[in-house]
Write a protein that binds this DNA or RNA. Structure first.
Lengths: 331, 331
DNA sequence: CAACATATTTACATCGATGTAATGGCGTGG
DNA sequence: CCACGCCATTACATCGATGTAAATATGTTG
């Protein structure tokens, strides 16, 4: 390459990096050589020297959970805009994989990591290698010293519950809810639900909080089916994501229970399917584009200024809104 | 690192790569040093030397099309099993991005690429740099010299159409179909449809073939709505993917048309949503796990034996089956 | 004990890009 | 004509891991 253009390797490098003191003549010669030989910089060489790869990792539990694939799309768009490449990973919610991500996987080929954790323990965050910039998505229940982007889950859940109450609902079940254990998204959303009940002066029935194994369609279906076996059926379901909600609607349908006629249903995430289901689904829509933007921006701040690793951890709360659709009797 | 363990850098390397002639003693010492210092190999250094990164790219049009995110999951699982890391990219169906993928992006940090093309031209494949192993997914309409994994689209579509015919349908529309232009998936599936009609002795009405901009929910809804404006309505919809089908079902519902009562609907891909929609969707299910397995396996063959780049291009056809559900009056 | 085989470890060069500092060319002011 | 400064280019070292080959240690055989 350098020989072909008749210059030194360094001059090629200078041309590629737009160093100003290069004569028009050599610049042209080098560019021509680049085209002629189809030359492309070798990332490995560059990183070895610069210490940066231009890649960031996005690590989520599962790609076939629509919320995450939709989010991934936004993150990739945003990263692209900022000249970064995204390495996408899934953890299946396994702690070992989340840990691996926190530590930059087996090797170091990533400038930073955006991680949506499920199983991580507080301790894992304390002991992580602070040289690798990390942004957490979702809940950040522990006062960790790590940047974080999320939504106000308690409030969102309270609003969703209030909407159900306003629709005359009195026995609202929570599918995917949690009363104890780690202060995760499920816990917070359940809290919001409890707050709304309390504000309305309604009793809280722990039996209406149904935990699930995963946030998938069939878990929602199973949970809904189990609720129907109770002597006193619920008249509304607050489902902690849209897959659960849609699975639940399906199960209700199979049992001849009408939505919204007999039971109202609300979900979280506003995945695309929810707009098109029959009935369409009322859901809490987090601003995914904003989440992606904030996460990438926070991460690149740390990447570009590693010295800032001492800066106080940042916390961003993205907006959300309740989208009322047919499943709660809406338009 | 090396100093900490009191050995040379090469010995560390030997331990990491399980070189056999290392004394138990030094091996232990090095391992301890690794733990103590949290050492991890630097991929850049390794690749610079070895020329391999252990990463492959999976490049698809859009991640929020469930078929692709489900496929991605399988590819990642399979790659993981074989010690590879997957770099996931989306092209939005833009030719420039597909080209960039073919050429290993701006830089070379990928050992190979699995590409699901939409806009690529035959010429692009002819002129690609053959040093980068590539496996194409989906259709491979041109006799390219590139490995390929797909399903038998013509047959699958014919079977789906036959199923509709067996259900007494006589005016079957094709949403997403194509009569002319590149020999893509749409063309092939339309051909299968035509074959089935012909075999049944039914006339072919080009007006029933409705092209779409993209394979998204709203495109299906729009297409279905336009079909309902025709004087003579179709009594079945063959939708070339599940998103189109589900969007179409929604549109029919909004127009008071019952599925399967008035119109039968079939989709392609068997995404998870299709099992849970109301009505559940009859669909052609490609064996995604098998597609992923074949693609990764073909790719790694080339990666591991670059000399084999002269081997004849391979072509794998993954199995598919028709899953009959409620939208065509099934169980 | 010499000669040789085997095991273990290391020195050195190398992959490609680039930061640092030095080189050589040229113009300007004194 | 010299000193100095600016510009364009390059020599060299370096990032980290590893292949090659050589050095060293240890053991074995005749």
């Amino acid at each position: 390459m350098a020989e072909y253009a008749g210059v030194s390797a360094k001059t090629v490098s200078n041309v590629i990096n737009d160093y100003e003191h290069v004569s028009e003549q050599t610049r042209a010669a080098v560019k021509e050589a680049i085209d002629a030989l189809g030359y492309r910089v070798n990332i490995a060489g560059r990183q070895l020297r610069k210490g940066r790869t231009g890649m960031i990792a996005l690590v989520v539990p599962e790609l076939d959970v629509a919320y995450f694939s939709e989010l991934a799309k936004h993150v990739m768009t945003e990263a692209d805009r900022r000249g970064m490449t995204v390495l996408l990973h899934q953890t299946n919610g396994e702690r070992t994989r989340e840990l691996a991500a926190l530590h930059g996987f087996d090797a170091q080929f990533t400038d930073g990591v955006i991680l949506s954790p499920l199983a991580l323990l507080p301790h894992d965050l304390e002991t992580r290698d602070r040289r690798l910039p990390v942004v957490l998505l979702g809940e950040r229940p522990w006062a960790s010293r790590t940047d974080h982007v999320g939504v106000d889950n308690v409030r969102a859940s309270r609003e969703a519950t209030e909407h159900l109450l306003a629709g005359g609902r009195r026995r609202i079940a929570v599918i995917g809810g949690a009363l104890r254990g780690r202060q995760g998204t499920d816990r917070l959303r359940t809290q919001g639900y409890q707050q709304a009940l309390q504000a309305a002066g309604l009793p809280f029935d722990a039996g209406l909080v149904v935990p699930v194994d995963a946030y998938h369609w069939q878990d929602g279906a199973r949970a809904a089916a189990s609720l129907l076996e109770r002597p006193e059926r619920p008249d509304a379901l607050l489902c902690l994501n849209d897959h659960l909600a849609l699975g639940a609607v399906r199960a209700l349908h199979e049992h001849g229970v009408r939505v919204p006629g007999d039971v109202h249903v609300v979900g979280f995430d506003d995945i695309e399917a929810s707009r098109f289901m029959i009935p369409s689904l009322t859901t809490v829509a987090p601003d995914k584009a904003e989440i992606a933007r904030a996460a990438v921006s926070l991460l690149l701040q740390r990447v570009e200024d590693p010295a800032a690793s001492v800066h106080a951890p940042q916390d961003r709360t993205a907006p959300h809104r309740l989208i009322v659709r047919e499943s709660t009797g809406g338009a």
